Amino acid sequence: MNKRNNSVTEFIFLGLSIFENRTSLLLQILFLLYGTILAFNITILSVILLDQTLHSPMYFLLFAFSVSETCTTFVTIPKLLASLLTGNHSISFVECAVQMFCFFGLGANNCFLLVAMAYDRYLAICCPLHYQVLMNKRVCTRLAAALCVIGFLVSLSIDALIFRLPFCGPNGIRHFFCDLSPVLRLACTDTHLTNIWIILLCSIVLLGTVILIFISYIYILSAILKINSSMGRQKAFSTCASHIIVVITHFGCAAFVYLRPKSASSLDQDTLISVVYVFLTPLLNPMIYTLRNKEVKLAIKKLLRNSFCYQKFGGRHCGLC
């Protein structure tokens, strides 16, 4: 990054300027949504952590995914809420670079974890006899750590491509966080080659992971159809249904924003889609996994029951635990 070519020291978020007269209402709605997101994700994390029956590779990966999604919300939402609360919509040049690095690092990590979850289901359904050997705690830990490192290396490449460019002004970002296209449009140089490299990297992450998930589910579907018991087929389908819904939601929003051709008018559409991606995706995912998963629902009921007994009877046996 050549600082001598940069006269811009901060950026101004303009993405939510259309709500300028309804800032108070918007703040209340977003604050409520964020509180709900944290409550749901903390519940999922607590249940998986405290319930021994959920200490399996599938739930370890779900735990890692929930942590990654929760961290993603920390990158964008608190800054947005602070901007609406104080009226200060600025962000420094360095903070913008850090925000983009963290957002896309965690976003890539989410994509890779969804692939790992599909691979876990593939092994459980297609290779059940070797599952305990191929997917144990050590393998899951190393896999999650490796995926996290790869995700942030991809993000570092994107960050380096963008913030090495000169920014001479204007400095108004038509978004509510430092996203790719709105920031790239502010560079005072030809960005055609940079755009190509960024689209290539995004395509590798998004399309590559979707293809791997698709291949996994071809094998999974083939194995499920060979199961003679209808109850067995239903159980196998139910373990995959939640993951498929999350995959469609996650990749659908991401592909719409980052892989379609850009125009000046599309930035406003990207902002609205990003609101869905940043707020509703981490809100819906724990709900999907909770509502469609009997083991998680039973673990939540058990946790609530134990909490009630502890508060009511000081940890003594109450007949419900």
Rank of each mutant, 00 (worst) to 15 (best):
C253F: 07
R22S: 12
S238M: 10
V115H: 05
P128L: 00
L320C: 12
M231D: 10
N293H: 03
S181A: 14
I37N: 01
V115I: 11
S46L: 14
Y217M: 01
F308K: 11
S222C: 04
S216D: 13
I91L: 08
I215A: 06
T194N: 09
G208Q: 06
K79P: 05
S83K: 02
F279V: 07
L259Y: 08
T194I: 03
L84P: 09
N6C: 09
C71R: 02
L186S: 05
L123A: 13
E20Y: 10
A64G: 00
I48F: 00
S7V: 04
V98Y: 07
A187L: 02
Y258S: 03
L25M: 09
N6A: 02
S92E: 03
F313G: 11
F167I: 07
P170C: 11
A97R: 13
L206K: 09
F65H: 03
F101Q: 15
Y258C: 03
E69M: 12
S263L: 02
L14Q: 12
C96G: 14
Y217F: 15
I198H: 06
N41Y: 00
T72I: 01
L304G: 02
L212N: 06
F101C: 06
L38R: 02
K312E: 06
M58S: 11
S238P: 00
G151V: 08
T271W: 01
L106T: 11
L27M: 11
V115F: 09
A108F: 08
I248G: 04
Y310C: 05
C168M: 15
T76G: 05
K312M: 15
A145S: 11
Y310S: 08
T72E: 07
F11L: 04
L207E: 07
F167N: 09
G107W: 06
C318M: 00
S17R: 11
R4S: 10
L84G: 07
